[in-house]
């Protein structure tokens, strides 16, 4: 499956402009014969929404939603938005549109709420990590901070996914002699998911600035068992094309039998013991 990550900077709160950009990128991806196009977290709205969140939320069946469904007749799309499924209740969500319909919604469960982050003031956390089908693949979505909790990716590993998609709005931070330390967080997890969960993993981060906070880009594709094999630019807008192959997952599982040897029942037993101690 030919996938494309679009690394860009949405206009904060200008859904119309961002949707136009999505449509233009979809048209370009269709022309380039891609099968799945993935936009970053909150790609339709921008990140630091504060009081804007309720004003720009995406509503199932609403005008923007229908337009995305229409766009997905030609190509599968994953886009990020503040989602209002129940009146007045917002979630930070990723929506998978395919063959003219929304087919899957992932609602972010890990909402960062410290320092510069205040997602807990805006969103209600999601409560599930459900694998879903993208063409021939079993896939799972993680949103930003969820990526940094490896036990959440493990839930998809247990569901035998072949493709993880991580969408992010990661602010670049931690300058030192070796560059920006936050870049390493995401790449480390890319290595972990690829090597130990034997996943094909597409990480899509945004770029651009919101009131001085810069988002670092550095989207990448990690091939199952092989680590990061392709990387987009840091800081700048970029497009990353990759090819996801089921054979890589099979090959990785044969080479190192982490999935076969995994003992989820043991993990569950121990978790119950620890939690109820």
């Amino acid at each position: 499956m030919k996938v494309r990550a679009v690394q860009f900077g949405p206009a904060l709160g200008d859904v119309g402009k961002n949707l136009e950009f999505h449509a233009a990128q979809v048209a370009r991806a269709v022309k380039d014969k891609r099968e799945l196009i993935v936009f970053p977290e909150l790609s339709l709205s921008g990140y630091q929404l504060k009081d804007l969140a309720a004003e720009v939320a995406l509503r199932p069946g609403g005008r923007e939603w229908r337009q995305l469904e229409k766009l997905s007749r030609a190509i599968d799309i994953i886009a990020g938005a503040p989602l209002e499924e129940e009146p007045g209740i917002l979630r930070n969500a990723a929506v998978y549109f395919s063959r003219g319909q929304a087919r899957h919604v992932h609602r972010k469960a890990q909402l960062p709420n410290y320092g510069m982050f205040e997602e807990g003031m805006v969103f209600k956390p999601g409560d599930g990590f459900h694998a879903f089908r993208i063409g021939p693949f079993s896939a799972g979505i993680l949103i930003c901070r969820e990526i940094l909790f490896p036990m959440l990716a493990y839930l998809y590993f247990l569901q035998k996914t072949d493709l993880l998609i991580g969408i992010s709005n990661s602010p670049q931070r931690g300058i030192g002699r070796d560059g920006i330390s936050s870049f390493q967080l995401w790449e480390t997890m890319g290595y972990v998911f690829s090597q130990f969960y034997q996943q094909n993993y597409l990480f899509v981060n945004r770029v651009g600035f919101e009131d001085g906070i810069g988002f670092g880009g550095g989207s990448f594709f990690a091939r199952a068992g092989r680590g990061i094999v392709q990387k987009a630019a840091y800081v700048d807008e970029d497009i990353l094309d990759a090819e996801v192959r089921a054979a890589d997952v099979r090959r990785a599982r044969i080479a190192s039998s982490y999935l076969r040897d995994d003992q989820p029942a043991l993990v569950l037993k121990e978790m119950r013991r620890i939690l109820h101690a």
Binding site: G13, K50, D51, E210, D211
Partner: peptide, 11 residues
Amino acid sequence: IDFRYLRDWNK
């Protein structure tokens, strides 16, 4: 205080 919008509102 609680009129919370970024300077980069709609930008």
